[in-house]
Lab assay of single mutants.
Amino acid sequence: MLYRITVRNADGEKLEIVVEMSEDEVRALAEELRKAGYEVRVEPIPEGEEP
């Protein structure tokens, strides 16, 4: 499935990426980023919607 991941650092800089991963993989990635001090938001992209 496609997911949009938005990551912000302490300075407020934002990075937005689209990935194709399983829900478990995305959850693990988000958890690791949060542990590293980043603010993370994950949104699933519905099938048929443009990323």
Rank of each mutant, 00 (worst) to 15 (best):
M1H: 05
M1T: 08
M1F: 13
M1E: 03
M1P: 02
M1K: 05
M1N: 06
M1W: 14
L2D: 01
L2A: 06
L2K: 11
L2E: 02
Y3W: 11
Y3P: 00
Y3T: 01
R4K: 04
R4W: 06
R4F: 04
R4A: 02
I5C: 02
I5N: 00
I5T: 00
I5H: 00
I5K: 00
T6S: 06
T6H: 09
T6I: 09
T6V: 08
T6C: 04
T6M: 13
V7C: 04
V7S: 05
V7W: 15
V7K: 02
V7N: 00
R8A: 09
R8N: 04
R8W: 15
R8D: 03
N9R: 15
N9L: 08
N9K: 15
N9Q: 08
N9M: 13
N9E: 02
A10R: 11
A10I: 06
A10V: 06
A10C: 06
A10S: 07
A10M: 08
A10F: 09
D11R: 13
D11W: 13
G12H: 04
G12K: 03
G12E: 02
G12W: 03
G12Y: 04
E13I: 14
E13S: 14
E13Q: 13
E13K: 13
K14I: 12
K14D: 08
K14C: 03
K14A: 08
K14G: 06
L15E: 05
L15N: 13
L15D: 05
L15S: 09
L15Q: 14
L15K: 14
E16Y: 14
E16W: 11
E16A: 10
I17S: 05
I17H: 03
V19L: 06
V19S: 03
V19Q: 03
E20Q: 14
E20A: 07
M21I: 05
M21T: 04
S22R: 08
S22M: 11
S22V: 07
S22E: 08
E23F: 09
E23A: 13
E23S: 08
D24M: 11
D24R: 03
D24I: 09
D24W: 13
D24A: 07
E25C: 04
E25S: 08
E25V: 05
E25F: 09
E25Y: 06
V26K: 00
V26Q: 01
V26S: 03
V26D: 00
V26Y: 01
R27N: 09
R27K: 08
A28T: 10
A28V: 12
A28L: 12
A28S: 10
L29C: 03
L29F: 15
L29K: 05
L29T: 04
A30M: 07
A30H: 02
A30K: 04
A30V: 12
A30G: 04
A30T: 07
A30Y: 05
E31K: 10
E31V: 14
E31Y: 14
E31A: 11
E31F: 15
E31M: 15
E32I: 15
E32L: 15
E32K: 15
E32H: 13
E32N: 14
L33I: 05
L33S: 01
L33D: 00
L33Q: 01
L33A: 02
L33T: 01
R34W: 05
R34P: 00
R34S: 06
R34C: 05
R34H: 04
R34T: 06
K35E: 02
K35P: 00
K35D: 02
A36C: 04
A36T: 08
A36M: 11
A36K: 14
A36L: 07
A36D: 04
G37E: 01
G37H: 04
G37C: 03
G37V: 01
G37A: 02
Y38V: 03
Y38I: 02
Y38S: 03
E39F: 14
E39Y: 15
E39C: 08
E39I: 14
E39S: 14
E39N: 15
E39T: 15
E39A: 12
V40H: 00
V40K: 00
V40I: 06
V40S: 01
V40M: 01
R41K: 08
R41G: 05
R41F: 08
R41W: 05
R41L: 07
R41Q: 09
R41I: 06
V42Q: 01
V42H: 03
V42I: 12
V42R: 01
E43L: 12
E43P: 00
E43D: 09
E43N: 07
E43R: 07
E43H: 11
P44Y: 07
P44R: 07
P44Q: 11
P44K: 12
P44C: 06
P44I: 14
I45M: 09
I45F: 08
I45H: 08
I45K: 05
I45P: 03
P46V: 13
P46G: 14
P46Y: 11
E47F: 13
E47T: 13
E47K: 14
E47D: 13
G48Q: 15
G48R: 07
G48Y: 10
G48P: 12
G48H: 12
G48I: 12
E49T: 09
E49G: 12
E49S: 10
E49F: 12
E49N: 11
E49I: 14
E49W: 09
E49V: 11
E49L: 14
E50M: 11
E50W: 09
E50I: 13
P51M: 02
P51W: 01
P51I: 06
P51T: 09
P51Q: 08
P51C: 13
P51S: 12
P51L: 02
P51N: 09
P51D: 11
